[in-house]
Amino acid sequence: MMAVLAPENHGLRLAVRYLVLILVAAIFVLPLLFMVMSSFKPDAQLLNDTSSLRAFLPVGDLTLENYREAFDRAPVRLFVLNSVLVTGVTVLLALIVCSLAAFAFVYMNWRGRDVVLSIILATLIVPFETIAIPLLLIVSKLPWIGLDGIETTWLNTYRVQIIPWIADGLTVFLFVQYFKDLPGELIEAARVEGASWVQIYWRVVMPLAGPVIATAAILKFLLMYNQYLWPLIVVQQEQYRPVMVGLQYFFQLDTAWGEIMAYLTMITVPVLAFYLVLQRAFIASIASQGVKG
């Protein structure tokens, strides 16, 4: 697209580059801008604006009414806290459990290793929707020993939203790919010096794994934060409900779209914040994945 311009015309070239970047950015941002702008508009105006470019603009009667009403309609804070809790704990445990497994697959020799790895990779292609009911039947009968003694089911808890989601093929796969690219000499040297496997894992490998940790954490965060079907069927008490189940509170016979937009805007904020915090490490992470060891 630059070829039509004289190469010496730097100013113009630069302007065109930015123009292209901005036009493309508009494609990605406008629908989200529609969401945010709509959250400040009364329903009648919101719905009328969808037929024109006003949908993207902060025009008309702007109000925080939708936000106020959303808080009245549903315990928004509770839902966000539940989601952040479940998501945070799962991400943390997933990083440990999956990296440990990947470490074993890449650096250690043990009987059954290749078979187990193939099986884990095959689970990548099982869509969750298709195993939800069998899984429900399993967790409903699982016992648990907790602080309050023995329980006979996992339903209506945080753990039922966390434990089944800790390990998954994709996260293991990401760690395996990354570990393969780390220089093997480091591990060999540590072995020769008599370091234990745990020491090598914790002192040598994990300090180098920052980038892949960021990638895996973001993917897992998105997956967990957007959970809907699973909490819907295993949680019957409001106190454990996450944000996407909470969204259902807003689909009444008389749907208030402004409130929905306000709710959607609010629940998107934590994800955006999490992403921005990790963005640097994330981009660096994937960058280093291409390096072949």
Binding site: V97, C98, L100, A101, F103, A104, F105, M108, N109, W110, R111, G112, R113, V116, I119, I120, T123, V126, I131, P134, L135, I138, I163, P164, W165, I166, A167, D168, G169, V172, W197, Y201
Partner: peptide, 25 residues
């Protein structure tokens, strides 16, 4: 060969996947 350590490292992940993905499948 480090059979015991290998399984010990892989087991939490593999066990969870086996219980919550493979078994329901």
């Amino acid at each position: 060969q480090s059979n015991r350590a290998g399984w010990a490292f892989a087991l939490p992940g593999f066990g969870l996947i086996a219980a919550f993905i493979i078994l329901p499948f």
